[in-house]
């Protein structure tokens, strides 16, 4: 039972539009996965389903043996691609809010990460820059002691220094008991962070493979592989 996530024959349509099709995927404990694909490939839909935010799909999903529901929300930490922060709160109030909301929230870890991210207790959310908001969101998500972390485009629209801080924080948060799934189209930023890649295109999984194995077999960088895989997709 080293699988945290098992997905069988997942299908999701929005009206007549097919968002996900015949998705079969297992994710193991202790690993960091990259969910790669161009815009509109279904990455966000897949993450939302795993986060328990979309329930009308067909197929079977098990997260630590349970169907996505309010129950799994307590073991799944989800970082949405849009901000879900309350703009009028301070950093301290936001931490307290999360602490009330999630039983597995580790305040000490949150505070430590905030410090590393150069966020101050009294900073007001709406006055934070885009990069600082991205730092706050990630720090809050990773301060939970979850079994599954879902990060949707954590590197979008941020400066280099923030990116480095986010990457370091993600590496420090890697644990044997939990699994991370990170969606991104910034392949080059994350390749050392990831152990395995899932390439998604138009709602289909094109490829799932260990990063090192992929390089060993092809002598190519992940960016080159990405271009190749999606050239014909």
């Amino acid at each position: 039972m080293d699988n945290i996530v098992t997905i069988r024959q997942l299908q999701k349509n929005f009206g007549s539009t097919n968002a996900l099709n015949s998705i079969n995927l297992t994710l193991e404990k202790g690993k960091v996965y990259g969910l790669l694909g161009p815009n509109a490939s279904g990455k966000t839909t897949l993450l939302k389903i795993l986060a328990g935010l979309i329930s009308n799909y067909s197929g079977e999903i098990l997260i630590d043996g349970l169907k996505p529901s309010t129950k799994t929300k307590s073991i799944v930490a989800y970082l949405p691609d849009r901000s879900d922060l309350h703009s009028w709160m301070t950093v301290r109030e936001t931490i307290e809010y999360y602490q009330d909301f999630f039983e597995d929230f580790d305040v000490q870890k949150a505070k430590k990460t905030m410090e590393f991210m150069d966020l101050n207790d009294n900073d007001v959310v709406e006055k934070l820059s885009k990069g600082m908001k991205a730092r706050l969101k990630l720090a809050l998500t990773l301060a939970r002691d979850a079994k599954l972390y879902l990060l949707d485009e954590p590197f979008d629209g941020i400066d280099i220094k923030t990116r480095e801080k986010l990457i370091e924080t993600i590496i420090n948060s890697q644990r044997d008991e939990s699994c991370m799934l990170i969606s991104t189209h910034h392949v080059n930023y994350v390749e050392y962070l990831l152990e395995a890649l899932v390439f998604l295109s138009k709602g289909h999984i094109l490829l799932k493979k260990n990063v090192e194995q992929l390089k060993e077999e092809n002598n190519k960088s992940i960016v080159e592989m990405y271009m190749e895989v999606f050239a014909n997709a």
């Binding site: 202790g30 890697q174 050392y192 962070l193 152990e195």
Partner: peptide, 14 residues
């Protein structure tokens, strides 16, 4: 080592 080189833990373990 993972932190220093900014690489996935499992890669270093391997």
């Amino acid at each position: 080592m993972a932190q220093k080189l900014r690489v996935n833990h499992n890669t270093i373990a391997k």
